[in-house]
Simulated assay, not measured.
Amino acid sequence: MDADPPSPLLALYLAKRDELKRYFTVRMRSAEAAEDLVQDMYLKVSAASSEEIGNAAAFLYRLGSNLMLDRLKSQRRSLARDTGWRAVTVSTLGGQDLADEPAADEAAAARQRLALIIEALNGLPPATRRAFRLHKLEGLTHAQTAEAMGLSRSSIEKHISAALKHLVRTLAA
Rank of each mutant, 00 (worst) to 15 (best):
A34Q: 15
V38F: 00
I117K: 00
M1E: 11
L14P: 06
L10A: 05
W85V: 15
M68K: 10
S7I: 06
I156L: 08
L43A: 14
E35P: 05
F24I: 06
T170M: 06
R17Y: 04
A131G: 09
T170W: 02
A47T: 12
D2S: 12
L98D: 03
H135Y: 13
D4M: 11
L79I: 07
P102G: 10
D40T: 00
D100H: 12
R77D: 06
K165Q: 14
A34F: 13
N55T: 02
G150K: 05
S7Y: 05
R113W: 11
A131W: 10
D70K: 00
I156C: 15
R77I: 02
N122W: 12
A162M: 05
R169Y: 13
I53Q: 03
A172P: 04
T89L: 08
L60E: 04
T145H: 00
L93H: 13
S46M: 00
T170V: 03
R86G: 09
E32A: 15
L137M: 12
D18W: 09
A109F: 09
K44N: 00
N55F: 06
L14A: 06
H142R: 10
A115K: 09
R81A: 15
M1Q: 11
A104Q: 11
L43V: 12
S46E: 04
D36F: 04
A56I: 01
A99I: 04
L12Q: 01
T145N: 01
E138Y: 10
A120L: 04
R62N: 13
L37M: 02
A127D: 14
S65G: 14
S161P: 04
L164C: 09
R81V: 11
R133E: 15
S65E: 14
F132S: 03
M149K: 03
R169A: 15
S78E: 11
A109R: 15
H135F: 14
T128P: 01
R17M: 09
Q39Y: 09
A33V: 15
V88M: 03
